[in-house]
Simulated assay, not measured.
Amino acid sequence: MILPGQTLGMLGGGQLGRMFTVAARTLGYRVLVLDPDSGSPAGRMADEHLHAAYGDAWALEQMAARCAVVTTEFENIPAQTLETLARKVPVRPAAGSLLHTQDRGREKTFIRSLGLNTAPFEVVTSADEAEAAFAGVGGPAILKRAAFGYDGKGQIPVDAPAAARQAFESLGGVPCVLEHRVDLAMEISVVLARGTDGATVCYPVAENIHRDGILHMSIVPARVTEAQARAAREAANRIAEGLDYCGLMAVEFFITTAGELLVNEIAPRPHNSGHYTLDACVTSQFEQQVRAICGLPFGDTRLLSPVVMVNLLGDLWTDGEPDWSALFAHPAAKLHLYGKAEARPGRKMGHFCVLGDDLECVISEAEAIFGAL
């Protein structure tokens, strides 16, 4: 076990790294962050911030020499960086575990290899393939960049073969995945941790509502049947085992109007839809990330109260600072701001959670607070 007093390395300095840093320091660890942004949110909370590129040889030497273990806050850290560090220090999750999650085509193929279902899809590497794939996948469909797409970026809805060709060209001709747009009843997610010994633990299932491709609200417990929740947890555990994963991860699912459970995406890191755990669970997802990579026993994932988490995007800052007094007037609302210097439309600046005994009342209160902001 890696015990408090030792130094944990974090690759990435955004809000996920920031909340990990807070959890780790609260537990008594030191944190060393590597991020090229001199003003990174995590870097400002860490014991030390290495302001350098992820491939910088000197910075990687520092991390390898000074850290007891290294982890990540996003999936697109260069594989070479992880492999270089892994020669001298444990890296959790390992580069091999992230390989499948850095490309949508590989990810979906891997998911299907485990006997789990996804929406119909085809990998597209040319404009001609885009047209042909539409006939195979069927419309309506959505073309997604295979790599580096998130929060609705790099995704274009298409409804005809010619539109698929045009969308492929507008995305720069990079490898893509064309995916059938299923009749969607609900989106849900499961956050889980897997330890160095292969043991896993799941958090309660979250029900997720998106706006313009970005998560707007997570509702916990999700309004699903116990059978659906159990199937989602079992699928998430199968994926973690298949990846030989160590750390904290999330799996996103579609539930179709026909009741079918489809795996949408794997997030090999803490997840936006798991932010509710900061206020409503015995152990937050970020403390659990610390425990998992350090080989500690898992913390209790029990839900203490129904909860709704609402994202705060930079759009709210268009006319200046939001009216926080409207939020603080609600004693069961908890505000989390990420310390980002510049608010931009679509940029995640923070979130708030609302807790209460009655889930429908909590949803209404959260919507009222967001409207007042």
Rank of each mutant, 00 (worst) to 15 (best):
M1S: 15
I2S: 00
P4Y: 03
G14A: 14
L16M: 15
V22F: 13
T26P: 00
V31Y: 01
S40L: 08
R44Q: 15
H49L: 15
H49C: 12
L50H: 05
A53G: 13
A57L: 07
L60I: 13
E61Q: 15
A64L: 07
T71E: 09
E73M: 11
N76M: 12
A79S: 15
T81Y: 11
L85R: 09
R87N: 07
K88R: 14
P90V: 06
V91I: 11
G96I: 05
D103T: 01
E107A: 07
T109W: 04
R112K: 13
N117V: 11
N117T: 14
F121C: 04
F121I: 02
D128H: 13
E131M: 12
V137P: 07
G138M: 09
G139Q: 07
P140I: 02
L143S: 02
K144I: 01
A147D: 08
Q155H: 01
Q155W: 07
P157L: 02
V158T: 11
V158F: 09
P161R: 04
A163Q: 14
G172W: 05
L178I: 06
H180C: 04
L184R: 01
S189Y: 04
L192V: 05
T200I: 02
C202D: 11
P204W: 02
A206V: 13
E207M: 03
R211W: 00
D212Q: 15
H216E: 13
Q228L: 14
A231Q: 15
R233T: 13
C246A: 13
G247Q: 12
G247E: 09
T256Y: 10
T257Y: 01
G274N: 06
G274H: 02
Y276W: 08
Y276Q: 04
T277M: 11
L278T: 15
A280R: 05
A280Y: 08
C281E: 00
T283M: 08
E287I: 01
R291P: 12
L296T: 06
T301P: 14
R302G: 03
L304Y: 00
V308T: 08
D315M: 07
P322C: 09
D323T: 14
S325H: 14
A326N: 11
A332L: 13
L335N: 05
G339C: 06
A341C: 10
E342V: 15
M349I: 07
F352S: 00
D357M: 00
F370C: 01
